[in-house]
């Protein structure tokens, strides 16, 4: 991946899909994320054909559920991951994954750009921390997220520094609740 692509503002593209049903923005998101979703699903044990089909479904879901995307609470990669994971449970385990209640922005969306930017920064720091983990530990986390470990095999302590990103999301939730009430 080139540096230029690294700086693509995926959140801005997804907000454009959310707010203007922007098909060009969707195509850009598709070119970047669909191959990653497909790669992720193949790592999780899906055949190439199933992974292709599911990756297409995931991207179609991204379009349908764009109204639920909140850049102050998740990066686009995180949000796409959650859709891909749910599709995987459905396709490979033939099971469901109940989701928490949706928290909509309500009738007047108020994306806060500063918060969205902070969230992106925080996500970057988490990725860097993940890359610095000892190989063995990182491999275990990957196995867990690729669906390769059962809930009993997952360690109580992953050693991931999740405190700061959690605090950031918590602030966004507090403001959202305030906005709704």
């Amino acid at each position: 991946m080139t540096g230029e692509q690294n700086e693509t503002d995926w959140a801005a593209l997804l907000l454009s899909v959310r707010d203007s049903r922007d098909r060009a923005a969707f195509a850009s998101l598709f070119r970047h994320f669909a191959p990653r979703v497909k790669g992720f699903l193949m790592k999780s044990g899906a055949s190439e054909a199933l992974a292709e089909e599911c990756a297409q479904d995931v991207m179609a879901t991204l379009w349908q559920k764009a109204h639920l995307f909140d850049p102050a609470r998740a990066s686009v990669a995180t949000w796409v991951f959650t859709i891909a994971r749910n599709r995987r449970i459905d396709a490979l385990r033939k099971s469901r994954r109940p989701e928490p209640e949706d928290l909509d922005w309500g009738p007047e969306p108020e994306p806060d750009q500063a918060e969205a930017f902070e969230m992106q920064q925080e996500t970057g720091r988490l990725a860097a921390a993940l890359a610095c983990l000892p190989e063995k530990q990182r491999a275990l986390i990957e196995r867990a997220y690729f669906g390769d470990l059962s809930h009993r095999e997952i360690a109580a302590e992953t050693g991931l520094p999740l405190g700061t990103i959690k605090s950031r999301i918590r602030l966004a939730l507090d403001r959202l609740r305030h906005h709704m009430s």
Binding site: K38, A84, Y145
Partner: peptide
């Protein structure tokens, strides 16, 4: 979930 997002970003892309 953000951990999953970071892993998705790093995964080798598969050609669509």
């Amino acid at each position: 979930d953000a951990v999953g997002g970071a892993l998705l970003d790093e995964v080798a892309p598969a050609r669509m």
